[in-house]
Design a protein around this nucleic acid. Structure first.
Lengths: 203, 203
DNA sequence: CTGGCTCGTCAACAGCTGTTGGCCTACGCT
DNA sequence: AGCGTAGGCCAACAGCTGTTGACGAGCCAG
């Protein structure tokens, strides 16, 4: 029931076990579901507390305020594969497969995406994940170091765009695409963004 | 001041000119700005009315309720280029150029994207635009008719993903990308999604 | 057994939201 | 000139929001 060691959450330093740990975890999962389904504004503390079958004031006591709850609910570790361990020409496919699996495993990423679009703190959190988790990995695959941020942004645009159309906007054809077909179409794109020579006009 | 004939709005049948047309237009532009900047929930009618320097009750009188205001504010015509008029191997570049220009011209599309993520009506509106404006055009470029929705969804994922990272989340590297570089990187992707043979595994 | 401390509930607050109806003003037609 | 009507403002409503503080129940150490 408690998923404090869910593979998408950052590992926490060992805390003294509290009697309320179960409640805290219940609140967090309820919060993730609500944020993923409704976004920041419409995911009210009262609704989250109702889902968790506790009083709204408990949420405040354990997480301070709504922003603190959100910060605790979307503490994400992408666990991107280390690119040295895979053949250079397959890094695109590996990345796409990893992202699709990550996205379908739980709703933390959907929550983060939905909130990041309308909430400044959510957008900053996404910028942080991008800079601290995607860019460093891209740095070890791209040919030219000074172009790494741009190439990583291109990869992010395609991966987040697919997540947007498939899991948030739910465009029917994007929802119906089988996983293997997503990988087959997107892998070459990501591969090119990461490793292909710069196609730019007069650079 | 009035942009009722803005090139991204659907042309309206000629209405009898009302004395309040200027106010109506002011409300609509203020609504677009607020929806684009804040999303549906945080774009309050009171704030929109304040921007338009009128009373909140006027918004209700002219547009019925908040949903009606939103529907009127994001009545979008993408004006996609007719693909027969361009060489088949340049349709990717033409599309990307068109979308980037569209997106930077005004904030209607940003408003629609921000709202579509947290509001059901907004998401349905995006599905409608996708089905009625993008799919029909794709139908005239793609080799195989029954794969058109999937291919159009792939195009949408890349275009919306770039808009998301650049105009909504504002990932710094995506913001800093010059327009020509976006076109140079994305055009081959879109071209492949539209015209390349199906890369699928065991089809 | 008794103290303190954690867990949890209840009730209430100030503020903001969408929405409504009444009232006044001033334009434009006859 | 007189009058209907459309444009606009004001005040208020019911409901919901995040947040707070007081108060009771039960675990655990001494």
């Amino acid at each position: 029931m408690t998923d404090t060691d869910s593979p998408t959450q950052h590992a926490q330093p060992p805390q003294p076990a509290r009697r309320s740990d179960a409640t805290r975890a219940t609140i967090l999962t309820a919060a993730r579901e609500r944020f993923a389904a409704d976004g920041y504004e419409r995911a009210t503390i009262r609704a989250i507390a109702r889902d968790a079958k506790i009083d709204p004031s408990m949420v405040m006591r354990y997480y301070g305020n709504k922003e603190g709850l959100f910060a605790a609910a979307v503490d994400i570790d992408l666990r991107l594969p280390v690119p040295e361990k895979v053949p250079k020409e397959e890094v695109g496919r590996i990345f796409v497969e990893h992202f699709v699996a990550l996205w379908e495993k739980n709703e933390v990423l959907t929550a983060l995406l939905r909130v990041g679009v309308t909430n400044a703190a959510g957008a900053e959190r996404m910028q942080g994940i991008f800079k601290e988790q995607l860019v460093p990995v891209a740095l070890r695959v791209c040919p030219d170091p000074e172009q790494v941020p741009a190439r990583a942004a291109l990869v992010a645009s395609q991966m987040l765009g697919m997540a947007l159309t498939r899991y948030v906007l739910r465009l029917p054809p994007a929802v119906d695409l089988p996983r293997e077909e997503i990988v087959a179409w997107l892998a070459p794109t990501v591969q090119r963004y990461l490793t292909a020579p710069h196609p730019g006009p007069a650079h």
